[in-house]
């Protein structure tokens, strides 16, 4: 069976421009890096991966931010802040918000979504050619299979004495990190994005992330009271923090985890308020689960 000619090669200039733009689209390096950190892969640095290889990411950085414009407004509304995002400075802020959300996502240890059913992933029957798809191939990446010859080997214990797969959160002083891991702020200042807003947003972001990280770490060691203290700390340091939604979810979790009747009631109230205020947030699923747990005595 022969595939038809790609539209790209046989179309008018307007459609070609759209396809071209779509092919060049992608996450900003900052987002990419934030996701790596949240997955516990932070230390490796998205260095070779994004920053170096994808010209697309570099130039699209600004593009992505701007393309997000109208919807950034949506996010703001959803978050209950009636801010009207006008102008590009706002866009830059919006972009870092996105990255921030990722960076502080409570990590692999607490997936917002329970995974899909086991049989859900569809299976490619003999298509190593998948790899031929265009992607910003990170330079010297070994094939996955070189790394782990046997995916089914090494069953893991369910108990978890060693620390969970969370990346050690880089301290705020990450600017001094090694050359291999470009600091967050180095997300290529794209030619079109005015710089002023970016550095401030980034440094605030790092500070906010660090505080929330303290709360998350406390939760992880099953110390909800300390987590709540850390969250109070966050709340007073950043009364209008961009990570407020994540802070709220952590608070719901901490209250639910501590488990007194008053705590559970508070968790439920807070969680329900969150669901009302952020109906589209991907955190909702997690909040729903937490809330449903609080109603079980």
């Amino acid at each position: 069976m022969k595939d038809p000619q790609r539209l790209f090669d046989a179309t008018d200039s307007s459609t070609r421009a759209m396809l071209e733009a779509a092919r060049a689209d992608g996450p900003s390096p900052r987002t990419h890096r934030g996701a790596a950190i949240a997955l516990g892969l932070g230390s490796l640095g998205v260095a070779s991966g994004t920053v170096a290889s994808s010209a697309a990411a570099a130039t699209v950085g600004a593009g992505a931010a701007a393309a997000t414009a109208p919807v950034a407004g949506g996010a703001a509304l959803a978050a209950g802040t009636a801010v009207k995002w006008v102008g590009i400075a706002a866009l830059v802020g919006a972009a870092s918000w996105g990255a921030a959300e990722v960076a502080t996502r409570p990590t692999p240890t607490t997936p917002t979504h329970a995974a899909a059913p086991l049989n859900a992933p569809t299976v490619a029957t003999g298509s190593p050619r998948m790899a031929t798809t265009r992607l910003p191939s990170p330079a010297p990446d070994p094939a996955p299979t070189d790394v782990a010859p046997s995916p089914l080997a090494a069953p893991q214990p369910l108990a978890a004495p060693p620390p969970p797969p969370v990346a050690p959160r880089p301290p705020p002083s990450r600017r001094t990190a090694s050359a291999a891991t470009p600091p967050l702020d180095l997300a290529p200042p794209s030619p079109r994005a005015p710089a002023p807003a970016a550095p401030r947003a980034a440094s605030t972001l790092v500070a906010e992330t660090a505080k929330l990280e303290a709360a998350r770490a406390a939760l992880q060691t099953n110390d909800p009271t300390r987590a709540l203290t850390a969250l109070d700390d966050y709340g007073s340091a950043f009364p209008r923090g961009v990570l407020a939604p994540e802070a709220t979810v952590l608070r719901v979790e901490a209250l639910a985890r501590r488990g007194g009747a008053a705590d559970r009631a508070a968790a439920q109230r807070l969680g329900e308020a969150f669901l009302r205020e952020h109906p589209a947030s991907p955190l909702c699923e997690r909040v729903r689960i937490l809330v449903s747990q609080t109603s079980i005595p």
Binding site: T31, L39, P108, H113, L118, P121, A124, P144, P151, P282
Partner: peptide, 27 residues
């Protein structure tokens, strides 16, 4: 939606992280 893409992308990889032991690396 643009404001949710980062989160959704992460969700995908969280699923991968949880299933890393059973995912066929070639696929």
């Amino acid at each position: 939606a643009p404001q949710n893409v980062d989160d959704s992308a992460q969700q995908v990889f969280l699923v991968a992280a949880r299933k890393i032991d059973v995912v066929d690396r070639a696929k």
